[in-house]
Design a protein around this nucleic acid. Structure first.
Length: 487
RNA sequence: GGCCCCAUGGUCUAGUGGUCUAGGACGCCAGGUUUUCAUCCUGGAGGACGGGGGUUCGAAUCCCCCUGGGGUCACCA
């Protein structure tokens, strides 16, 4: 039985790269009919950020990554919060001390920092805890304990030899033990460090595969030696390629949007994010890139995960989102756009039937142009308000033309009398005006669009006219009569 | 700097010794469709696969070195 976990730390708003790791784990579990566990690694009380855990869980839910065990759902290995598992880590850490595989270290953080500073000053290739407390005699340890000195528990790294493992993505990787120092397993505040808690919980929770970011491979010597000291069989490891910014540095806030909740807020679709995240470092083996979640689950395999870092470019994500928006059924598009229109103040928080019908008519007119749901207000504002911006350059381009006064007059006269005021009828009379003026279609269509929307580009004119409705159309055409000037 | 990882057009990626004068996608450019924009369709520019050595009849594909890039070196995860 495949069991994987996503182990976020509630130290801030979720990062895309982190959610991508969650997605890979989830997809891997679902592909194998295995289980997906969520475990909250809240062992750093200093960096804890209120609300971040909910933001993380909500992001998973938004992507429909359901978990079989974890917060809110519980499970056979509860609790799934490391802060509630402290006794376990204590027991194991002290067990290791008793077995002579770990030791209490009474050096203060300042002392250790000083040590490192000195090593740096001496030009050491690498700074390391000098293991001074490893040499303490039992009596010395006793004495310090009796003095009430705080201590941490450090792991006794083997001083020689190597440790190796077969990474599911990178292949065999080997490390020399002597290059890793005696890392802290249990902090002086009684909380475990990642290394201890992670290894212990992965074992206790029967995790079979660890899929995590590449930044963790450098911790493998610690983890592997810990497993060895504990006499546990380590799980399989797959280190995922890092997500980089356009400058090839590890993706971070300065590269633009990286907070996952921010993508949601901007109006990316769940399906689009799911699809895009899935191809951040993975491909199905053929040319397809647009894939449904079912296809991704069916096709997923670790062998097809790339081993080189992935430069995260927003433009491809944007393209993909536009693709998914275009495929959206109209009803769903409308539903999804409502909050954005409301937030922009274009429509009231609660809609009456008329407004609702108007929104339903108008939103689909710009569907193919939307790349983000948040584009909706910008694209549609002139349907809802009369003080929309006017493209002055476009006005200047057209409103000095000699046929414009007659055109407006004629359009107003015919539209006013037109019944029913529907797209085909509107097109028919408009074409009559075009013929009557003896000009090209565009010479009427473009200036009319400017009159009605203030812009040179927009939805198909005749549909737009019907949607706007007769009163608004007549009023805007009359207003445009004031724009006319002589060249 | 030590250790580890990576190296196909601007970016992602296919390619696992010959079918590759390297395929696809985003982006870019041009043309077409269209009442505009967008969509859609067609075409195009852009890499001879980081460099150098090998191995082989034959290498983008295997090996070595170099170079470049990245990650990591906490009582953070």
């Amino acid at each position: 039985m495949v069991r994987v976990r996503y182990a976020p730390s509630p130290t801030g708003m979720p990062h895309v790269g982190n959610i991508r790791t969650a997605l890979f784990n989830w997809v891997f579990a679902r592909h194998h009919g295995g289980q997906f566990i969520v475990r909250i690694e809240d062992t750093d009380r200093n960096r804890y950020v209120e609300g971040s855990e909910q933001a993380i869980l909500n992001s998973l839910r938004w992507l429909r990554l359901d978990w079989d065990e974890g917060p809110e759902v519980g499970g056979p290995h509860a609790p799934y919060y490391q802060s509630q598992r402290l006794e376990i880590y204590h027991r194991i850490a002290h067990q290791l001390v008793d077995d002579g595989k770990a030791y209490k270290c009474f050096c203060s953080a300042e002392e250790v920092e000083q040590m490192r500073a000195q090593q740096r000053a001496q030009g050491a290739a690498q700074t390391m805890y000098d293991r001074r407390c490893r040499k303490l005699t039992p009596a010395e340890v006793k004495a310090r304990e009796n003095d009430g000195l705080p201590y941490v528990i450090r792991f006794k790294m083997p001083l020689e030899g190597t440790v190796a493992y077969d990474d599911l993505i990178h292949g065999r990787t080997e490390f020399q033990n002597k290059l890793t120092d005696d890392f802290v397993m249990l902090k002086s505040d009684g909380f475990p460090t990642y290394h201890l808690a992670n290894v212990v919980d992965d074992h206790l929770m029967a995790v079979t595969h660890v899929l995590r970011g590449d930044e963790w491979v450098s911790s493998m010597p610690r983890h592997l030696n810990l497993y060895r000291a504990l006499g546990w069989e380590p799980p399989q490891f797959a280190h995922l390629p890092l997500l980089l910014g356009p400058d090839k540095q590890k993706l971070s806030k300065r590269h633009g949007t990286t907070e996952f909740t921010e993508f949601i807020r901007q109006g990316y679709l769940s399906e689009a994010m799911f699809n895009f995240l899935a191809i951040c470092g993975w491909n199905p083996g053929d040319d397809r890139e647009i894939l449904s979640r079912e296809e991704i689950i069916a096709l997923f395999s670790i062998e097809r995960i790339s081993d080189n870092p992935f430069v995260f470019h927003h433009d491809k994500l944007l393209w993909m989102n536009g693709h998914y928006i275009r495929e959206l059924p109209k009803e769903r598009l409308i539903e999804l756009c409502l909050p954005y229109l409301q937030e922009a103040g274009l429509i009231p928080p609660t809609l009456n039937a008329d407004t609702r019908a108007y929104v339903e008519r108008v939103v689909p007119l710009e569907q193919e142009k939307m790349k983000l749901l948040s584009d909706a207000p910008r694209l549609l504002d002139f349907f809802f308000r009369d003080d929309y911006p006017i493209d002055e350059a476009a006005v200047r381009k057209w409103y000095g033309e000699p046929h414009i006064p007659q055109m407006l007059e004629e359009l107003i006269r015919r539209y006013e009398a037109l019944e029913p005021f529907t797209t085909p009828e509107i097109e028919r009379v408009t074409r009559e005006v075009i013929a009557w003026l003896g000009v090209k279609g565009g010479e009427v269509i473009h200036p009319t669009r400017i009159a009605l929307s203030g812009r040179a580009t927009g939805p198909s004119l005749f549909e737009m006219i019907e949607a706007l409705g007769k009163p608004r159309v007549l009023q805007r055409l009359r207003q445009a009569q004031r724009w006319v000037f002589r060249k």
